[in-house]
Amino acid sequence: MNGSREVILGRIRRALLRPGPGQGQEHGSLNGVQSSSGRVDPVQLFGQFQEQSERVGGEPRLCTDSEEALRGIQDLVVAAAYRRVAVSNHEICRRHRLAQVLSDLLPEVSLWIEEGNSDSGSSRRRNSRQLAQADLSITGAEFLIAESGTVLIASTGSSRQISLLPTAHLVLATPDQICPDLAAVFQQLGTAPEEGRLPAALTMITGPSRTADIEKVLIKGAHGPVRQLTWVIGRL
């Protein structure tokens, strides 16, 4: 709060005394984008997600069960010769006991496990340096958006930096998390999410980090992950 607050608000109020194009109209009932669909066939939803994610350079995949996903991770790590892998504390990672299973499957890989929240700034900084060295991170997501091939993650599910600093980022998800479009996600988030439900950071990720700032040439991996993988585990 500062002195200029009253000055600025005063100037705005004086300015608005001169009626503009829409003054006096009540637009309170205006809504934004309507979700395009009611119930959609899960096969179709995943198909759309896959198509859109691939369009922007993402690597989507369907794994029928936990076993296939775990084997897939093993293959991925071996094929790309990843040496450092970070696993988040997201519910889905714990459900598949990733930390334990991966240390058995990939004994030569150095695993970094995200543990409960770290209250001190110095330990968070240490974590940042660790994560900046990681080749691959594995996290969960809150929603997948079929229309654009997007995953939505929350700062309550895992740290912000684990999906950002490593070279590759793998999201594990379930078929019921796929929504047709952004409007449908927002309907689930609630029209005006109350205090408790809205995390400090909600992030939508659509494909790998990119830039076209040099002569409009598209480059993957500007500041964030070079690879963005999304694996949906389960039967559609």
């Binding site: 600025i8 859109q52 922007v56 504390n89 995200e114 929240n117 770290s118 700034g121 968070r124 974590n127 940042s128 958006i145 229309e147 654009s148 091939g149 997007t150 700062s155 309550t156 895992s158 740290s159 912000r160 930096q161 684990i162 952004l182 809205l198 995390p199 400090a200 950071a201 909600l202 992030t203 939508m204 990720i205 659509t206 494909g207 790998p208 980090s209 990119r210 964030g224």
Partner: peptide, 29 residues
Amino acid sequence: QRQTSYVSMISGPRREQEWDGPEEFHLIL
């Protein structure tokens, strides 16, 4: 683009139960 690579929706500083994020959030109007 249908969606840019990243959209960040930030509501205040890091919450107590969260892993990371800034301790202070300032907004200049």
